[in-house]
Design a protein around this nucleic acid. Sequence first.
DNA 1: TTAAATAGCGAACACTGTTCTTGACAAACA
DNA 2: TGTTTGTCAAGAACAGTGTTCGCTATTTAA
Lengths: 240, 240
Amino acid sequence: MTKQEIHQIVSRRSRPAKSPLGRDIIVTTALDLLSRDGLSGLSLRKVAAALDTGPASLYVYFANLGELHALMLDRALSAVALPAASEGGWRKRLTSLLASYLYVLYDGHGLAQLALSTIPTGPNALRLLETLLELLLEGGIDSAVAAWAVDLLILHVTSVAAEQSVRRDQGYSIGPVIGAINAVSEADYPRIHSLREELLSGGEERFGWGVDVLINGILHAPVLPIETEDIAKPFVNPTE
Amino acid sequence: MTKQEIHQIVSRRSRPAKSPLGRDIIVTTALDLLSRDGLSGLSLRKVAAALDTGPASLYVYFANLGELHALMLDRALSAVALPAASEGGWRKRLTSLLASYLYVLYDGHGLAQLALSTIPTGPNALRLLETLLELLLEGGIDSAVAAWAVDLLILHVTSVAAEQSVRRDQGYSIGPVIGAINAVSEADYPRIHSLREELLSGGEERFGWGVDVLINGILHAPVLPIETEDIAKPFVNPTE
DNA sequence: TTAAATAGCGAACACTGTTCTTGACAAACA
DNA sequence: TGTTTGTCAAGAACAGTGTTCGCTATTTAA
């Protein structure tokens, strides 16, 4: 075998009989479908059908559905707007960046739910991570704290986006919750009863409040990880 | 119809007088299956098979799978240990309660993922909510702040539990992430590169750290919801 | 005794992700 | 110029999934 395989593995066919069908077009089509029908309406077969092909054809480009999800998420994250240095102080830019991330997840129906079950490692996710670190470090936050804080921030925003998305898309799902909170027994749960309005109140400003709480907490966080036995315990035995 | 047929009905039905098959036994069986095989290994048909019946039989007790999920979650939440008043100050009891909640989710494989997609309204969930409110109010936190803070705390702990569960159950899934973080280009992402160890470090103490950050942030939270235009904006248009 | 209500359950429907398999075809080699 | 080779497009099928439709059998109420 004196084969010289120095050449790159580009597309071997210049123009196939039918469609090009590359990774990009598949991800784009899948994101379109996701935005329209949500995560539950997204399936490999529907993506294939939208591309006028069969489901087996897609497996040339992805090992499984999870891999497609990861690629979709990273592609979507390219829409996250990085704040310009002229936009203000680090804290304002941090809030702005998180808001942009929130909106991207919120805008693509079902994207947030996807983000919860997929840890993206693509360039756009790394870019977001890098920028978050940069802003926290600019704020004078200890680097070890910042490293843990970015995960805290991203996890929080992702969770909020997922929760809000579900509330928007499946409004019926939140109905029973409101009913349950409002119909709670005053005798059994006095605090829930008296605070039932506040528990359910707040729309968009609630997100800003939460981010503020997190940043304030991070600013007041212990620099070194604390070692408390009370916290480690439950991992061993919760009732002890 | 003569009565003699009622006495010997063995041949009339494959299973003459079988099991009671109530909601409780179904939820119990489903939780067993969840603990053993995780969320992906849980299906209505497997629950039915474990009860030696068909899937249609379960629909007498639940409208759909989501309803079963909600019942499972609330049942599991009964294991959350409420801290005794003698256990210490409000903050210590709050941490202890959240740790117990975390452990319950973490212990039941896949329970945390279930909790992310299901908002429980059962008595055990309300009990948890009530206790959280009680502790926060005891800590002197404004009631409006407390009402929003409980959601923040629960959402955070649930997310962490889900993330940790996935890392434990599907260790392979975290492998690529570690690889991606470690193999990150120093030129493109200098902060990720220099902090790669800290980003991935920390086991159980990281949860305690996160809870501490949240509580500190809540203690330093503005009493009244702030109104910033920068935050509301992205909901309308992220690029503006 | 009779009628109504309900629980159990087989069968089927419309889906899902994934794999096996078979061809077609451009590129590399003889 | 063949001939081989590796890659990709697809059809078909497999093993699952949640859910619904009827039909029995049993229990309950009148």
